[in-house]
């Protein structure tokens, strides 16, 4: 029993990890099939977890209603919307006024998706613009040397990407350096430099470290050192 509970999962992780790693270097149909098959299996395994999601959602909102926690009335909305979507998607017949059933174009499910899901999604996405304004305001209250640097770079980028940046640049006098003519203030040049030199280089430094960490965590998983994901207990 201890073997089944403790050793077997580690053996499975090791064998699966090593197999998927090695297959990358082998150019054959077997290796391609292994990859496709594995990804398909994972989709199926993860697909079943959706049931856990449903249970968690219902449990959470039922509890809220039963305990009459603040705002519990809205839990009815969630449960009703969920039930409607499930009914529309799984009912084996066409709803009156709709030409198709299940998830196909022209079905009730599709109509609900198009006129409720999509607009709400798009709205939440566009709300970002307001929040970016308040985030920018937060950035303006730079408290430290680092925050000031961030602020200066951000202002140059912002001004450089609007027409007024060009106007300012063209109004300043020019000078010669290394055989090229430059403006004293040239936002276009500066934004390009900021993006391609310090920005690209610092990102590279950050990312190289991140990728090494990812390699390290992968190795720890394959060799059974990292096993938090398997859960505790016996």
């Amino acid at each position: 029993m201890i073997f089944l509970k403790r050793q077997l999962p580690i053996i499975i992780a090791f064998v699966a990890g090593i197999m998927m790693w090695i297959r990358y270097y082998i150019p054959s149909e077997v290796s391609t099939n292994l990859e496709d098959g594995y990804l398909e299996w994972v989709r199926i395994i993860v697909g079943f977890a959706a049931i856990l999601g449903i249970l968690s959602l219902l449990q959470h909102h039922m509890l809220k209603i039963r305990m009459k926690r603040p705002g519990f009335a809205f839990s009815y909305v969630t449960i009703a919307a969920f039930a409607l979507m499930m009914f529309a998607g799984f009912a084996p017949f066409n709803f009156p006024g709709f030409a198709e059933k299940n998830m196909e174009t022209g079905s009730l499910f599709n109509w609900l998706y198009e006129f409720t899901f999509i607009p709400m999604q798009a709205t939440m996405f566009s709300v970002l613009a307001f929040f970016i304004a308040s985030a920018a305001f937060r950035a303006f209250r730079a408290r430290s040397m680092e925050a000031t640097l961030l602020l200066v770079a951000a202002i140059i980028m912002m001004v450089g990407r609007v027409p007024i940046g060009d106007l300012i640049s063209n109004a300043t006098p020019t000078f010669m350096m290394f055989g090229n003519e430059y403006h004293f203030i040239d936002f276009e040049e500066w934004t390009g430099w900021l993006l391609n030199v310090p920005n690209a280089a610092a990102k590279r430094g950050i990312l190289l470290g991140v990728y090494l960490s990812q390699i390290a965590i992968s190795i720890r998983i394959i060799f059974g050192i990292e096993r938090t994901y398997m859960g505790g207990g016996d």
Binding site: P9, A16, G17, D234
Partner: peptide, 25 residues
């Protein structure tokens, strides 16, 4: 019976670790 889910996680996460390692490189 919750220990049985370790088999699924082992295949899912272990396999993905091996799958993504050479791709990260």
């Amino acid at each position: 019976l919750s220990w049985l889910s370790r088999m699924s996680f082992a295949l899912y996460i272990g396999g993905f670790a091996g799958y993504s390692l050479p791709l990260i490189v």
